[in-house]
Simulated assay, not measured.
Amino acid sequence: MGITPEIYDLKNLVNPALGVAGVIGGVISGAISAFYGENINMYVALLLIAVVALDWLGAIGAALKDGSYSSDYGIRGVFRTTIIFLLPLIGRLIDVISGIPIIVAGVEISGFYLFISAGLIYHSWMSMTANFARAGYEKWIPNKMLKQVGSEINAKITRSECRREKINGKEIELSSLKPTPTVESLNELVIPSQNNTKIEEKETD
């Protein structure tokens, strides 16, 4: 394979797309470092972001598959994701205010931040697994893990059915529904009324 002069052309290395991507990456990494801290805290934050992003992809795929996706569902997802990212920040602030860090192998770790983030990562991981199973990727998930998230899958299926019925304009009634009258019963109701009118005509005559 020969080396062409185009490889050394700065136009292929410097372009607006790469510049925008670099700026966005720098802003995101700086924000994560400022909000959640550096060292291991940053890696924990990146893991949480990755799991939540995969949970979003699985949820959208499952909702599109069963026909339960709606704008209201997306708005609730954004609200839920915002809370997930704010809770570790609150834990980080508690650690900073209290000034009681945990030292593990010579590395300073925020106690409340790590505790809250670990719980959110576990919950998001379970939700992600259930969503991908509903989206049709259950054959790629170990059976042991599917058993662990069985209750989560059933709960998500129940919620998706409720959303789909709302989308279709149907409502679930807990009370027993009255049977609709058949054609024969309607005819029976019409015939007496016709006989009564004939009797009244004879009486008037």
Score class of each variant (00 low, 15 high):
1 M>A: 13
64 L>H: 08
140 W>F: 13
180 T>W: 00
134 R>W: 03
103 I>M: 13
65 K>A: 07
102 I>Q: 05
42 M>W: 06
82 T>N: 07
96 V>P: 02
137 Y>E: 04
33 S>L: 14
155 A>K: 14
130 A>K: 12
192 P>E: 12
144 K>N: 03
38 E>M: 07
115 F>P: 01
141 I>Q: 06
64 L>T: 06
181 P>M: 09
114 L>N: 05
160 S>E: 14
154 N>H: 02
59 A>K: 13
64 L>P: 00
90 I>A: 14
63 A>H: 08
176 S>Q: 09
170 K>A: 10
175 S>W: 04
103 I>R: 04
1 M>C: 09
119 G>W: 02
88 P>V: 04
37 G>P: 04
3 I>W: 11
40 I>H: 08
5 P>V: 04
14 V>N: 10
123 H>D: 14
197 T>H: 07
39 N>D: 15
187 N>R: 14
165 E>G: 01
176 S>F: 00
117 S>F: 05
166 K>F: 01
53 A>Y: 09
95 D>N: 03
89 L>T: 09
101 P>H: 02
49 I>G: 11
47 L>C: 03
182 T>Q: 03
154 N>T: 04
68 S>L: 05
168 N>P: 00
73 Y>P: 00
96 V>L: 15
194 Q>L: 15
57 L>I: 15
162 C>M: 13
33 S>D: 12
141 I>D: 02
130 A>R: 11
114 L>K: 00
183 V>N: 11
60 I>N: 05
102 I>E: 01
49 I>H: 02
162 C>S: 12
154 N>S: 09
107 V>F: 05
172 I>D: 05
131 N>F: 03
86 L>D: 02
195 N>T: 12
89 L>F: 15
103 I>H: 02
202 K>R: 13
166 K>R: 09
195 N>S: 10
159 R>G: 09
68 S>W: 07
177 L>H: 03
164 R>C: 00
131 N>S: 15
4 T>I: 04
